[in-house]
Design a binder for these strands. Structure first.
Length: 471
RNA sequence: GUGGUUGUAGCUCAGUUGGUUAGAGCGCCGGAUUGUGGUUCCGGAGGUCGCCGGUUCAAGCCCGGUCUACCACCCCA
């Protein structure tokens, strides 16, 4: 027997049942995106490597999937080697090894790879905006639902290929966008019937905290440390900051952060006082005020200020978002997002502020499955099956089948004349609601016996009554 | 990328200190029912024990490597 086939690490097949559920998620999100005025966009699976590198931080760069150039980029190396030593075996003297090393080091990275799979949808979007700036009406609101790839080590809820559903608005600094995105989160999770916490913070507040500490240059180290607060606790956070070279004095100045509790309204005065001397922090707080004041009544989403929320992506400059499910056991976030003031600047287009969010469809799937939130009827399966009794009967059914389908009802005719038990089992397995039995007897009388598979009841109807019965 | 756990039938799992033909439940196929699924009864098929190598008279079991899934870091959807 041949070796069983397999798929690459961290990738998955999706069965028909899984696809119906996934489509339910995608369709729900897409419908809401459209309702908010976002327009669809797709970009290629591959980008030029240089488009992606340096946009996601050190960690991110390591996780980019690079695509090997086609063609034999080692040919030149082989030719040079053969020219000097021929193709036969060579004794590995020090000189020979030195030559080998020199030849290997001579291969430029760009000869090996110059393309990479997209790591997220935001950077390709920024690239698109810069490339097509003259055709776009700003502010530009687009949504994009496509897979992304990360060379991460897979774990539960963490895949190497997964889908993101992004909505971004670029070309406006208005905080109305932040408000809109909070409402959009609420809209989607209300439609999906899932309770969530939408956590919000602002990079400007984080920058202010670093400023207050007296070590503004340590902002990244400080922020990534406090990001872990709920996971490892205050002591370990301080330990980590110390390890990264943050002084004890600075840590003392950061300490009020750990005492913050309660709602935005409750924390606000403390923040005001603590961060009074930082202009940038004050701006961040004011921006957050606006979002909290105008988000309005939310249904399934609870908007929470979280001063420890940092998010790793380098390009965020203003608001940052993260969504966690309040139901189910998945601790990690199911959505992320934030404002970036200069993402397009790196591609040569200045003064283009944007803000966007991303739904992690795969994780939302896991949560909905665990909590039993998928609707029972996902409308993917056939409603009526015509049993096949033989050529004459089947050809008669074919005509009826056409009418049934034209009336918008999903129906099929069993293709082979096999025993009834097998045909009924097929209907059962596929979750088909009704089976039309049209054998010799029915044909003679001009009727159809329709069996309701759920109740097991059967009734005879005239051919022209069939569609009414089903609709 | 670092450290760890895991792998036996399509699925979930047994398998004694290494010892003859590796088992169960569910599922699948066939029959009881030649026009009736989901319930019942009877029968059947299906395994190079993840893969490669080693130790041994003998390996599903011990050792090494490798791949996979999972867990903790790191990071993140």
């Amino acid at each position: 027997m041949a070796q069983k086939p397999s798929i690459p690490k961290g990738t998955r097949d999706f069965s028909p049942v899984e696809m119906l559920r996934r489509k339910y998620i995608f369709n729900t999100i897409e419908r809401v995106f459209q309702k908010y005025g976002y327009l669809p966009l797709e970009t290629p699976a591959m980008e030029n490597l240089e488009t992606l590198t340096g946009k996601y931080g050190e960690e991110g760069d390591r996780l980019i999937f690079k695509v090997l150039n086609s063609g034999d980029f080692m040919q030149e190396v082989r030719d040079k080697w053969d020219a000097k030593y021929g193709s036969g075996p060579v004794e590995a003297t020090a000189d020979v090894i030195r030559d080998m090393r020199a030849l290997a080091l001579d291969v430029k990275a760009s000869q090996v790879t110059e393309k990479a799979l997209r790591y997220d949808l935001t950077v390709p979007f920024a690239r698109y905006v810069v490339q097509h700036q003259n055709e776009i009406a700003f502010p530009f609101k687009r949504y994009q639902i496509q897979p992304v790839w990360r060379a991460d080590r897979p774990q539960k809820g963490r895949y190497r290929e997964f889908y993101q559903c992004d909505a971004d608005v670029i070309g406006s600094k208005s905080l109305l966008s932040e408000v809109e995105l909070v409402q959009l989160f609420d809209d989607v999770f209300t439609a999906l019937d899932l309770q969530v916490a939408v956590k919000i913070n602002d990079r400007k507040v984080l920058a202010g905290i670093a400023e207050i500490s007296g070590q503004p240059e340590k902002v990244v180290d400080i922020v990534t440390a406090i990001d872990k607060l709920d996971k490892i606790g205050q002591e370990k956070v301080e330990e980590e900051m110390r390890a990264k070279g943050v002084s004890n004095e600075a840590i003392t100045r950061i300490a009020p952060l750990f005492a913050l509790r309660g709602t935005w309204a409750e924390q606000r005065p403390q923040l005001e006082q603590w961060l009074a001397s930082s202009a940038i922090a004050q701006q961040g707080l004011k921006d957050l005020d606006f979002t909290f004041a105008n988000a309005g009544t939310l249904h399934n989403a609870r908007l929470e200020f979280d001063p420890t929320l940092a998010r790793g992506l380098d390009y965020y400059t203003g608001a940052i978002f993260e969504v966690k499910a309040l139901e189910g056991s998945l601790g990690s976030s199911i959505c992320g997002g934030g404002r970036y003031d200069d993402l397009t600047g790196i591609f040569g287009l200045k003064n283009m502020s944007g803000v966007g969010i991303s739904f992690g469809a795969d994780r939302i799937y896991d949560v909905l499955l665990e909590t039993g939130k998928f609707p029972a009827e996902l409308g993917g399966s056939t409603k009526l099956l015509f049993a096949n009794f033989g050529e004459t009967e089947a050809l008669h059914c074919l005509k009826l089948l056409r009418q049934v389908r034209e009336s918008g009802i999903a129906a099929e005719l069993y293709p082979d004349t096999v025993k009834m038990a097998k045909q009924f089992k097929y209907a059962d397995d596929k979750g088909i609601a009704f089976v039309a039995i049209l054998g010799e007897n029915e044909l003679k009388q001009g009727i159809i016996t329709v069996k309701d598979m759920k109740s097991g009841e059967q009734r005879a109807v005239k051919e022209d009554e069939l569609i009414t019965l089903l609709s």
